[in-house]
């Protein structure tokens, strides 16, 4: 592991960050929390000669309510999200997902924008953000664009982000008051572990007690984090029952295999995923918890 010297510059706005990242005289990488970047550097897998620090850009550092949405700056840390009253009140799913990440040290440094842009297949905020219909607002040298998070990450460590762009923030619609959410994660130890499988789930019932909306998004499961519409279809318009959540779980497993084919981990995940789906649906729709 050779130690490479490099420049460092701190951006004070998104526009400045984009300008710095576009500078053709440097190979630049954006630096937010550095929790992924420093590991890559240690492994010598990426090259750069300048880091553009975007962690202090004011417009990327806030969590605010704008009308019917919460806007979370991309440079907000996981720890800040976990503790923020707006998130706790309206988006507990995101708080749970962020709290499941790494250790306190990693949560104190790592950012939500970095988690998305790094695009690890096991990124814990991805299923939560996709489940919450979050839209990333991206600043590029040609102006701004808004892209749903589900379309930002197109595969493991692959994004649709244009070169020299930065994610400024995420616009997350506030779910209706009757919505309930759940986030589950399986790791190889209790904390500070990489997701073996996770699940974000959100839904609510209509006045007749039928499922009006349901979103089921597994994490660390498919190359692109996505809603499992076949599992959702089992529930939609129905009165939730034990039998129905079991069917939804099975539909989830079938859909997973349809997307990924049978992989080395399939024998495990085709059993564990239905369990997570069932449990999340139970929690969201108020069925008794399993023991």
């Amino acid at each position: 592991m050779s130690i490479k010297h490099f420049d460092y510059v701190r951006a004070s706005s998104c526009a400045e960050a984009v300008a710095l990242l576009s500078d053709p005289t440097h190979i630049s990488r954006p630096l937010a929390g550095g929790t992924d970047l420093m590991v890559l550097r240690h492994k010598g897998e990426v090259q750069w000669d300048r880091l553009v620090d975007i962690s202090q850009v004011p417009e990327m550092r806030t969590i605010v309510q704008q009308g019917e949405a919460i806007v979370v700056g991309a440079a907000v840390t996981h720890a800040e999200i976990v503790e923020h009253p707006l998130i706790q009140r309206y988006l507990p799913l995101l708080a749970d997902a962020c709290h499941s990440i790494g250790s306190p040290q990693i949560r104190n440094r790592g950012t939500i924008g970095g988690n998305v842009a790094n695009a690890a297949a096991c990124a814990d905020t991805l299923p939560a953000l996709v489940c919450l219909d979050a839209v990333a607002r991206i600043v590029t040298k040609d102006g701004e664009m808004a892209v749903p998070v589900k379309d930002v990450v197109v595969g493991p460590n692959r994004t649709s982000l244009p070169a020299a762009s930065v994610i400024r923030d995420f616009v997350i619609p506030i779910p209706p008051a009757q919505a309930r959410m759940a986030f589950f994660k399986i790791g190889r130890r209790q904390v500070q572990s990489i997701s073996r499988l996770s699940l974000a789930c959100l839904g609510w019932l209509d006045a007749d007690g039928r499922v009006a909306e349901v979103r089921i998004v597994p994490g660390a499961c498919t190359p692109q984090t996505q809603r499992f519409d076949q599992a959702e279809a089992v529930m939609l318009g129905q009165v939730p029952t034990e039998e129905l959540v079991r069917k939804a779980g099975q539909a989830g497993a079938v859909q997973m295999i349809a997307i990924t084919g049978r992989r080395w981990s399939t024998p495990y995940k085709e059993l564990a995923l239905p369990a997570l789906i069932e449990r999340a649906l139970r929690k969201v729709f108020g069925l008794p918890e399993v023991r």
């Binding site: 592991m1 492994k43 010598g44 897998e45 690890a120 297949a121 096991c122 493991p156 990489i194 997701s195 073996r196 660390a220 499961c221 498919t222 190359p223 990924t260 992989r263 080395w264 981990s265 024998p267 495990y268 059993l271 564990a272």
Partner: peptide, 30 residues
């Protein structure tokens, strides 16, 4: 895997040709 299935699963994409010190499997297990 062993607790759930009774047997272990083996990741087929493990690295075998790599330099000392940087040899490592992909961080995420899909």
């Amino acid at each position: 895997e062993r607790v759930l299935l009774g047997y272990d699963l083996k990741d087929t994409v493990t690295t075998t040709v790599c330099q000392v010190g940087v040899c490592e499997r992909a961080k995420c297990e899909l």
